[in-house]
Write a protein that binds this DNA or RNA. Sequence first.
DNA 1: GATTGGATAATTGGATACAAAAATACTTTT
DNA 2: AAAAGTATTTTTGTATCCAATTATCCAATC
Lengths: 229, 229
Amino acid sequence: MSAAFSIEPRAPATAEEEAYRHIQRALRVGRYKSGERLIPEDIAAEIGMSRMPVREAFRRLASEGLVVLRPNRGCVVAGLTLDELYETFEMRSVLEGLAVRLAMPNLGEDEIDDLERLLDRMERAGQSSSSDWVIRHQEFHGSICALSQRPKLIRQISALHAVIEPYMRIWFDDVDKPLSAREEHATVISALRSGDARHAERVIQDHILDTAPLLAEFVTPNRTMNAGR
Amino acid sequence: MSAAFSIEPRAPATAEEEAYRHIQRALRVGRYKSGERLIPEDIAAEIGMSRMPVREAFRRLASEGLVVLRPNRGCVVAGLTLDELYETFEMRSVLEGLAVRLAMPNLGEDEIDDLERLLDRMERAGQSSSSDWVIRHQEFHGSICALSQRPKLIRQISALHAVIEPYMRIWFDDVDKPLSAREEHATVISALRSGDARHAERVIQDHILDTAPLLAEFVTPNRTMNAGR
DNA sequence: GATTGGATAATTGGATACAAAAATACTTTT
DNA sequence: AAAAGTATTTTTGTATCCAATTATCCAATC
């Protein structure tokens, strides 16, 4: 079973890498909340290293839009405005649309069966913990993207997922809706089964764009705290 | 006249920022060539600072795919394989397509006139230096994207342009073709004038995908030196 | 009572110093 | 003479230190 585009499994070779994963994971899980200030010394102490590798990790995270870095003002967890939330979903829609279109030639019966298994896992996970559901949901989308065999595209989509994941978690925590989610994603699978690449592209685009408004209420109304680097 | 998505004009507030711009510019201009090793101490000495801010700049550049950073092995200028070149253009096509579609409502007669002026400037620049043409070409595409008013999207497209810019330069150096280029881009403008957002989206997608094969011959055949971070 | 000014404390940015890893040159051995 | 192992040099990674910038606190003034 493919691991989709989750975090790479091999052990960190450097302290910077360790810091990067530590912070990324914390953001994923929602341990650091939007707008919160990240103090290098604290994080460094947490992992058992000095500030320097943590600082370097900040740069990478800032490039990916997960934190905001202002000169002499430190590092804060990036929050999305409403506009930015929609923008992120617009980008996801075309990029994942592309991924689906390119994945089509590599999509056989076996792959579709795998996706259906993932869908089941997603639903089961949704009954217990919202965290698990979000992870499985990522895995589902990631598995489709992985079939495109486009490393840069996959990486980019993964970065967008990382940005919206905290909001997905809050949304799912609010009320559980594994049933409607299942139907939504089942639609995607049957589009894949049709064999029509352009049609499947449109379907996943619509699926993604439909998701955005659901999360809208969990976002700072607008222009409160911008993330533009 | 809008400055498109060129480098932000304000002075660098930190040494890291200065190093980042210095290296980015050098890569743009082709002063550091693909596969070349970037020695932190040399660059630091060039700008007059220590290795540390340069290292941090490396992280950001690596996130954007401009350099490759391997643990204990230093920093080398990223080169695209043929697959990666096509992949980059595929991503550009959908992202710029999205930008054009979203720009449509903000596109009046004045904006189209501006674009036509940019097209003239591009052609004139093409007669003198290939460097200037590439810059103007960026400006043209950037101006369209800017009208979408989507900061993250614009930034992302800009990053993709930065990756392919060196190849554009080499290609244009090889033989001058400002004439065919003019026709290509004029087609885009008339699509914008049609007012049909989806049609304009398709036209720019096609325009971008048509460009990729032209640059193909200036790229390391394949799998020689990968850039996946 | 609110606001401005200044002193002090906390935090960030950058340079230097040190340790660890990799690359290189040099033997030594077969 | 080729290959392998070893020592030396170079380079990278991290920690510590110092300077510069920003935030906080308190008093003075309006």
